[in-house]
């Protein structure tokens, strides 16, 4: 049977998390269809070039601009009957939407998979990544969210999918969109960044994050934070890297003033190169760091900014 992937997008472009999710779908079957529910009639056509997608199922309607789950989940329920697996990224978009669709289909969703063993069996982290469970699903339609960092993305180009329209748009009078505040930054998004520099409680205040920003701007990096730094009010929650924040796996991750709680490690330990700067030489972060520097960050950061 075919595999259905639910596209995450901002009505302008398809989000990179969708490309990782398609990569996971490729491990389950060759016939991959992409469901694009949007207010932008151009988007389904632009999605048709994505590598490995054989069909785009397009639903275009003004009411789909904010993709609220009360409208989207019943649509997925209707489309899903022709598929063995329905996949979406385990981002706040997918986490919000998929369990609603799963319950409508009376299927027990498998969340946040990090590996595919076979058609029914998946690996996924549990207990904040302390353990990896191998789980087998016996449901006939399997709803799955995918940990994007665990699968290398497919390309945005190279495919030539047919576009088919799906017209049964569901009306939603239960909830409505009011407003959105998306942090605007010239720096890359955390989940898409090649380099990330993150600060922890050791930064002592939000103002001191400018020390990280200077380095981030030189490296074209994103700025992140540990949960401790977010809880202390230094930076907003969308900076948070960790099990309860964003899961990242950049080429280079620089952890500054972060002790290395398991909660944080769960969100960044798949990074290719990890650097830790901390004045406590026994901090657990050094156990996962490729390069550790025991130093006072207030001396080390300005020096690092000068020398890179």
């Amino acid at each position: 049977m075919s595999i259905l992937v639910i596209a995450e997008h901002d009505n302008t472009s398809i989000r990179p998390s969708t490309l990782n999710t398609i990569a996971a779908a490729k491990l389950l079957g060759d016939d991959i269809h992409l469901f694009v529910a949007t207010s932008n009639s151009e988007l389904p056509n632009s999605a048709s070039t994505i590598e490995s997608v054989s069909k785009v199922i397009s639903s275009v309607d003004d009411t789909l601009e904010h993709q609220l789950p009360e409208a989207l989940a019943p649509m997925i329920k209707e489309v899903a009957t022709n598929y063995s697996h329905v996949l979406a990224p385990a981002t706040t978009f997918g986490k919000n939407l998929m369990p609603r669709a799963s319950a409508l289909l009376d299927s027990q969703q498998i969340s946040d998979i990090s590996g595919v063993i076979d058609q029914d069996t998946f690996k996924r982290p549990i207990y904040a990544g302390s353990c990896i469970a191998t789980v087998k699903s016996n449901d006939s339609v399997k709803l799955i969210t995918v940990r994007a960092t665990a699968f290398d993305p497919v390309q945005l180009i190279g495919g030539s999918a047919a576009v088919e329209s799906f017209d049964s748009v569901v009306s939603n009078d239960k909830s409505e969109f009011v407003s959105e505040e998306i942090a605007k930054s010239d720096r890359p998004e955390l989940t898409a960044a090649d380099v990330i520099i993150s600060g922890g409680r050791g930064m002592q205040s939000g103002d001191n994050f400018h020390l990280l920003e200077t380095i981030a701007d030189k490296l074209g990096a994103a700025v992140g934070a540990s949960r401790a730094a977010v809880d202390a009010g230094f930076v907003p929650n969308d900076y948070q890297v960790g099990q309860t924040g964003k899961i990242v796996a950049p080429n280079l991750y620089i952890a500054v003033g972060i002790s290395g709680a398991i909660q944080h490690l769960a969100g960044m330990k798949d990074s290719k190169v990890i650097v830790a700067i901390n004045k406590d030489e026994d901090a657990p972060i050094f156990q996962v760091a490729d390069y550790g520097l025991v130093a006072d960050l207030f001396n080390a950061l300005p020096e690092l900014a000068d020398k890179i």
Binding site: E176, A183, D238, K246
Partner: peptide, 11 residues
């Protein structure tokens, strides 16, 4: 709390 920021909805 959504990826990249905040969204307000009315239910």
């Amino acid at each position: 709390e959504i990826d990249g920021g905040l969204q307000t909805i009315k239910v």
